[in-house]
């Protein structure tokens, strides 16, 4: 029981940072929360709603995203898109990620 819990916690920790990068990378074109969730899911990355929405708010508060409300099919939707600041840091994050992947590949080999 305790082992399963610690495993889950470690997996959550591992995924947390990855999700930020995944979200930023998908928002070069605007997406609303649910469409982004599906977009990530279609590519194999399942993200919990309880993680995604607060994360979108945090990234917006840090100036990495911008959002706007739009009325579509009589339903208001909040669309998110990467900001100029976000565009600046995304390549750096990608480079960092590539570095981590290559280092970890060596470490785990």
């Amino acid at each position: 029981m305790a082992n399963t819990e610690s495993l889950e916690n470690v997996v959550l920790e591992l995924r947390r940072g990855v999700i930020v990068l995944a979200v930023l990378s998908q928002l070069s074109s605007e997406q609303y929360g649910y469409s982004l969730l599906k977009l990530l899911s279609d590519q194999g990355l399942e993200v919990d709603q309880g993680t995604l929405y607060p994360l979108l708010r945090r990234l917006e508060a840090h100036g990495l995203l911008e959002s706007v409300w739009k009325l579509e099919e009589a339903r208001p939707r909040r669309y998110y898109i990467i900001s100029a600041e976000g565009k600046k840091i995304l390549p750096k994050l990608k480079k960092e990620w590539a570095g981590i992947v290559s280092v970890m590949a060596k470490v785990l080999a």
């Binding site: 929405y53 409300w69 339903r75 208001p76 909040r78």
Partner: peptide, 12 residues
Amino acid sequence: DIEKELKSTLED
């Protein structure tokens, strides 16, 4: 905003 977004998500 959070409430509005949540409702919109649930409807979707």
